[in-house]
């Protein structure tokens, strides 16, 4: 990575870390939009665990799927049976 690009990425990461706050929008038990994620810890069709920085949010269910994902947000769709906050 070039020095400028590295600097830009670092600044972006620092900035996003400061601005980033965790938001979760649940639509019924079929879809969840997560903003401010720090990464996926576990992903399979029965369980999805998301790192938010302060805690881990664990979704359990059937046919769980990440519809789309980028460095800041992701969408989980499927039949969600439970949401657990692991401190």
């Amino acid at each position: 990575m070039k020095p400028f690009e590295k600097k830009l990425a670092d600044t972006r990461q620092n900035l996003s870390g400061k601005i980033r706050s965790f938001h979760m929008t649940v639509s019924d038990n079929r879809e969840v939009l997560i903003e401010g994620s720090r990464g996926v810890i576990e992903y399979n069709e029965n369980s999805v665990k998301i790192n938010t920085g302060k805690y881990i949010v664990a979704f359990a269910g059937r046919g769980l799927k990440l519809s789309c994902m980028n460095d800041y947000s992701l969408t989980i769709s499927g039949f969600i049976t439970s949401i657990e906050f692991i401190m």
Binding site: G39, V40, Y43, M69, N70, D71
Partner: peptide, 26 residues
């Protein structure tokens, strides 16, 4: 750990969609 790839790539600005997971592959 394919999740590591997802995290690494998303941090580098790669966007994903239609993500489906099997037992062995993503």
């Amino acid at each position: 750990f394919p999740e590591r790839f997802l995290n690494l790539a998303s941090k580098n600005g790669v966007m994903f969609w239609k993500i489906s997971s099997d037992k062995e592959k993503l």
